[in-house]
């Protein structure tokens, strides 16, 4: 029973929102490498969605392009989610390991990422009057992934549905705290660097004079 290859597991979990992840947990399957590939595809999708979208829908200034922005929006947010969820659920008697949360979350995002590629592609052949199709694709992708994410979190931690939702809300709060701390640390390091550089220039100047 359920002897599936790695790719078939993705297909199975995505197309079976209610039992897919339970099955995968029961068979102890799920590939870390594939999850990373999905994450990379998400990052690419985010860049394409912004830069290669149909011009009739979105005009983007060419002068500014900062890839770090998209990296933060996808990869950093995802990793924050994983770490935040792990921290919260360790306290809430969740069974998930860091590795499993990473894999399951990534698998759950597949419909969303696919919808992004599909929408970007469709935006080149549709016109403004037909924007409703794009909105449909977007909505389906988001809802499907949201459903999968709840299912994935439920399976990975072996929670009841109420506890899953609670844990997810707490995770979002934890993410906010983490991002805040990250910004703070970055700011402090920047100040440190500037301070050290000021000392260096001062000393260099003294030596010269």
């Amino acid at each position: 029973m359920m002897e599936l290859t790695t790719l078939q597991w993705v297909k199975h979990t995505v197309t079976h929102p209610f039992v897919g992840f339970e099955d995968m947990r029961w068979k102890k399957s799920g590939s870390f490498r594939l999850a990373s590939v999905i994450l990379l595809l998400w990052f690419i999708a985010a860049v394409l969605y912004e830069r290669a979208y149909g011009f009739q829908f979105k005009a983007v200034p060419d002068r500014v392009f900062n890839i770090v922005h998209y990296f933060v929006q996808t990869v950093v947010v995802f990793l924050t989610w994983v770490i935040g969820n792990w921290s919260v659920c360790t306290l809430l008697d969740g069974e998930g390991t860091l590795r499993r949360i990473y894999i399951y979350s990534a698998y759950a995002l597949v419909p969303y990422i696919a919808s992004r590629y599909l929408e970007t592609f469709l935006s080149h052949i549709l016109i403004r009057d037909e924007v409703v199709f794009l909105e449909g694709v977007r909505l389906i992708g988001i809802c499907w992934s949201a459903l999968l994410l709840v299912s994935a979190m439920k399976a990975v931690h072996q929670y009841s549905i109420g506890r899953t939702v609670l844990a997810m809300l707490l995770t979002v709060a934890a993410m906010a705290v983490m991002l805040f701390l990250m910004v703070l640390v970055l700011a402090i390091f920047q100040q440190m660097a500037m301070f050290l550089y000021a000392i260096y220039t001062e000393i260099a100047y003294r030596i010269q004079v």
Partner: peptide, 11 residues
């Protein structure tokens, strides 16, 4: 940089 004009021409 006009999406609106582009849309008209593209349709």
């Amino acid at each position: 940089d006009s999406s609106y004009y582009y849309d008209r021409a593209f349709s």
